[in-house]
C-alpha cells in the first residue's frame, strides 16, 4: 500500500528494509548512528542494529576507503557524506579506487557501495555546503550517479543503488527532504540507468533532475496554457545517462531545454547538449538551451544566492526562444 510520506522517510525506509533483507548492508558516516544523521535520514537504524551503524571520525577518505575494501569482501556499505561538497576530501577513493575496482578485478569483485551525498543550494549556507557536485564525477567511467526527484524515486532508487554492484554516488537534494509523496510500503526497485518521461509532449523537451523537476513541471503547465506542449524527462540516473530516452524525445520535439541547478559549464546540460549535437543534429529545430546557475561559487547572502541560482522565468524565456526560433 502506498501512503504519503516524506522524501527523508522514504530514504530511511529504503535503508531499513534493505538492512532487514540483507545483513551485508551497513551504514557509516559522521553522526549517522546515535544521532541518526545530520538531516535525520538514518534515524532509528542504530537503535535496531547497534553493530551495523557506525559513527566515524571526520575522515571522508577513511569512510569511503573502508567502503571500497569492505565491498570487495562482499559487504554492502552505505555511507553518508553530510554535504556533497566534502567529496573533494575523498575524491581519490571514489575516482581512483571505487570506480576502478571492477575493472581491476575483471568482474571478480567490485565496489558495491553507496555514498549518499547531500547536495544543492538554496539553504543559505554558502559555497562549501551548497554545490551541485555531479559534474565532478561525470567523466569517471565506472561510477554511477543517481539523482532522485520524488519520495517514490528516493526509496526505489536507493534500494536499487544498494543492490547494484557498482559504486553509486546517491545525490539527495536538501530541498527535497521535506517533499511528500506516495510511496509503497513494500520493498521495490526503480531500475538505474533509465530516465523517466514525466510528461509527454510534442513541442519542447525539458530535461530536469532533482529539485529542478518542479521548474519543468510548472513551465510545462504555463506553456500548455499557450498551446505549447512540453515533454519532461527526469534522468533519474545522471551518469551513465539514458541517452536513448532523451534522444527519442528530442527527435520528436526537435527542441531541448536542460534545467540544471549547478553552474552552466560542463554540467549534465553540457553533456546532453553535446551528445545531441553529435547524434541528433538532424532532428533539431532550434538551438539547445540550458537554464543553470551562474558560473560563480554559491554566495551566502540570500539576495546574492537567489541571483546566482537558476530562475524559473529563465525556463519560460528559453521555451519562448526555442519556439520562436
Amino acid at each position: 500500500m502506498a501512503r504519503i510520506i516524506s522524501f527523508s522517510k522514504a530514504l530511511n525506509e529504503a535503508m531499513t528494509q534493505e538492512m532487514e533483507r540483507d545483513e551485508n548492508v551497513f551504514i557509516l558516516g559522521e553522526d549517522v548512528a546515535k544521532m541518526g544523521g545530520d538531516f535525520g535520514i538514518t534515524t532509528g537504524i542504530w537503535e535496531r542494529w547497534p553493530n551495523r551503524a557506525f559513527d566515524t571520525a571526520l575522515s571522508e577518505s577513511a569512510i569511503t576507503g573502508l567502503c571500497c575494501g569492505a565491498s570487495v569482501c562482499g559487504l554492502r556499505p552505505v555511507a553518508e557524506l553530510m554535504f556533497a561538497d566534502f567529496i573533494t576530501v575523498c575524491y581519490d577513493q571514489l575516482v581512483n579506487n571505487a570506480a576502478k575496482l571492477n575493472y581491476m578485478y575483471q568482474g571478480e569483485a567490485s565496489a558495491q557501495m553507496v555514498v549518499r551525498a547531500v547536495t544543492g543550494g538554496g539553504i543559505r549556507c554558502a559555497y562549501h555546503h551548497s554545490q551541485c557536485i555531479e559534474p565532478w564525477l561525470m567523466n569517471i567511467p565506472g561510477l554511477v550517479i543517481v539523482a532522485p526527484a520524488t519520495p517514490y524515486e528516493a526509496k526505489g532508487l536507493l534500494v536499487a543503488s544498494i543492490r547494484n554492484n557498482n559504486p553509486v554516488v546517491f545525490l539527495e537534494h536538501k530541498h527535497l527532504y521535506n517533499v511528500k509523496g506516495e510511496v509503497p510500503e513494500e520493498l521495490y526497485e526503480i531500475p538505474l540507468y533509465e530516465a523517466h518521461v514525466e510528461r509527454e509532449g510534442t513541442d519542447i523537451t525539458i530535461v530536469a533532475a532533482m529539485s529542478m523537476l518542479k521548474f519543468a513541471q510548472k513551465a510545462a503547465d504555463e506553456m500548455a496554457a499557450k498551446g505549447i506542449s512540453v515533454e519532461i524527462i527526469n534522468p533519474r540516473t545522471i551518469f551513465p545517462l539514458d541517452k536513448e530516452t532523451i534522444k527519442e524525445s528530442v527527435a520528436k520535439t526537435g527542441r531541448l531545454i536542460v534545467v540544471q541547478e549547478g553552474p552552466k559549464v560542463m554540467g549534465y546540460g553540457a553533456e546532453i547538449g553535446a551528445m545531441l549535437g553529435e547524434e541528433l543534429f538532424e532532428y533539431l529545430k532550434a538551438p539547445i538551451k540550458r537554464v543553470t546557475s551562474l558560473d560563480t561559487p554559491v554566495p551566502f547572502a540570500p539576495g546574492m544566492e537567489d541571483y546566482v541560482l537558476p530562475h524559473y522565468e529563465d525556463v519560460i524565456t528559453a521555451c519562448n526562444e526555442v519556439m520562436a526560433y
Partner: peptide, 10 residues
C-alpha cells in the same frame, strides 16, 4: 505520437 514525417534537416 507527435512525431513529424521528416526530420527538419531531411
Amino acid at each position: 505520437s507527435g512525431c513529424s514525417e521528416l526530420t527538419p534537416k531531411a
